[in-house]
Amino acid sequence: MNAIAALSPYASVLGKSNIERHTLSVLVDNEPGVLARVVGLFSGRGYNIESLTVAEVAHGEHLSRITIVTTGTPEVIEQISHQLERIVPIHKVTDLSMQDRVIERELAMIKVHGTGEHRSEALRLSEAFRAKVIDATIESFIFELTGSSAKIDDFVELMRPIGLVEVSRTGVAAITRGAKGM
């Protein structure tokens, strides 16, 4: 399959294995269907979405900000940005990973079941990760944790043997450091 993928006109022959992870910030006019356009572009052209978050950021102007974490070769990532720019209601696409200073955060709520030693171990670990307890019963906790996706991954892995029940994550929100906007 690989040989064929490389020959396909769409897969650039130049970058075969250098897959990178990028965070794109997309400012859109919040009109009906705009999210479907963005998601449809990714599925239609075979791009990956690792996470996607969206919310209105300026009510008066009907502006929403979509943050997409995607993977691909540098050529594919460049294509993704340009393909997004073709969508008529999109104001601006910024590849935050090309910026030198970005902050990425994700919020997760993690439900853990356990009693006795397991229960106190979960609590100790949550303190080490600075997770907040937002719900508790005598046999469970729900932790709220904010941080990089990797930090959340780590915490979830630690909870798994203790009694992980379920996780709900927001996906990545991202912004550049400093005074300038996108």
């Binding site: 490389a6 020959l7 006109p9 769409y10 650039s12 022959v13 130049l14 050529e75 460049e78 294509q79 340009h82 393909q83 720019e85 073709r86």
Partner: peptide, 27 residues
């Protein structure tokens, strides 16, 4: 045709109104 054998020795200038047409198939 075969992409890795497409005009191998040339420099390429591309004029296009759509940025997504640029570097899509050929760098």
């Amino acid at each position: 045709g075969r992409l890795d054998a497409f005009s191998p020795g040339s420099k390429k200038i591309h004029i296009d109104i759509d940025p997504s047409s640029i570097n899509k198939n050929v760098k």
